Computed example of a mutant assay.
Amino acid sequence: MLQKLWVKLIVVTGILTAIAYLAACFLLYFLQTRFIFFPSSVIEITPKAFNRKYQDVWIPVLAASGKVEKMHGWWIPAATSNANVLLYLHGNGVNIGANAAHADRFHQMGFAVLIIDYRGYGLSEGSFPTEKSVYLDATTAWDYLVTQRHIQPSNIFIYGHSLGGAIAIDLAVQQPQAAGIIIESSFTSIQNIVNIRGQFRLFPVNIILNQHFDSINKVKGLQMPVLFIHGTDDFVVPVDMSKQLYAAAPEPKQLIIVPNAGHNDVAEIAGLQYFQIVNKFVRLAE
């Protein structure tokens, strides 16, 4: 009798464990964007903090639902009318406010800068972002530069940091006429990031994952100069991932490794060298 009770208990425990496991798999499948995107609606810093003249821009995006949603961004004009333009695609955290200082660095290099908040970030309309929606936002921002501001594609450089690097690569493959692309502190794919962190090793990640950001395969299709920048002490995205992206990318390409730099402070640690690296890349790409 006792043996039967133990058998029954083991069976019930097994069934409950299986149900809990499957429930966790379903939650990870449907809620995985919450582990990737971390938007905030509060913009704490604007280019005004750096005494820059800028314009708020509102770019209409045709959502999958058929609704037109407004995407917010800043246009920071250059000192000269014939300057190159930088399309700035930020990472997965906060919003454009957290990137105002870095956008200003590019302005100091002579760029006119368009920095956007993906829908669901900052003041942009829309629901919680997805891989598909941020790709559309980047494409729409590119179209805005070309059709509304009449910028020649050969005068547009695409910049992406971290997750923005994956978005930039996707856009650059679609727009081979761009002048060049700068990828900073970015990764090979979401699956590879998940694999190295190990929190989800009990789950069939290759089956559950529906947000891929598969840069390692897309980067092979680039048809423009590409600059990869990464810090040696990046504990969010390992520097080896930029090395892998560099190895997979076609020429012309450059890889700059900044000693002692982490995920978000590469420019600060590199200092003047950062300006020199980017300016040299731009001259070679022109």
Score class of each variant (00 low, 15 high):
K253R: 07
L222Y: 01
L209V: 14
F203C: 05
L255W: 02
I208K: 06
S215Y: 09
D234H: 04
M241L: 07
V194Y: 05
P225S: 08
V194R: 11
N206G: 12
N217R: 11
L245A: 06
F228D: 03
M224D: 01
Q199W: 12
S242A: 13
R197K: 13
V219A: 01
L245T: 03
F235K: 15
R201M: 14
S186F: 04
N192H: 11
V237Q: 01
G198D: 11
K220E: 15
K243G: 09
F213V: 07
N192Y: 14
K243Y: 10
V194W: 02
I208D: 03
A247F: 05
V226M: 00
Q211V: 04
M224K: 01
F187Q: 06
F203N: 08
S186I: 06
F213H: 07
L245D: 05
I190H: 06
L202I: 09
F203P: 04
Y246I: 00
S189V: 12
Y246T: 02
P252V: 00
L255R: 03
T232K: 12
H230L: 02
M241S: 03
S186W: 01
L227P: 01
Q191S: 12
A248W: 01
L227D: 04
D240F: 09
N217T: 11
V239D: 06
T188M: 10
Q244T: 04
V239K: 10
I190P: 09
P250I: 02
I207V: 14
Q244W: 06
R197H: 15
A247P: 07
F213M: 11
A249L: 06
Y246L: 03
I216L: 06
K243V: 13
F203Y: 09
I196G: 10
R201Q: 15
V219R: 01
I193Q: 10
N195T: 15
F187L: 13
N195I: 15
K218E: 06
N192P: 12
S215L: 07
N206V: 10
L209W: 14
A249F: 02
F200G: 08
S242F: 05
K220P: 10
I207W: 07
I256C: 05
D214L: 06
L227R: 02
N210Q: 14
Q223L: 01
V226P: 00
L202H: 11
Y246H: 05
A247S: 12
I193R: 09
Q244I: 07
N192E: 15
D234V: 01
Q211G: 12
Q191M: 14
P238T: 11
P225N: 10
L222S: 03
P225H: 03
A248E: 04
S242L: 03
G231F: 08
M241N: 06
P238D: 04
M241K: 04
K253E: 01
G221P: 02
H212K: 14
I193S: 08
R197G: 09
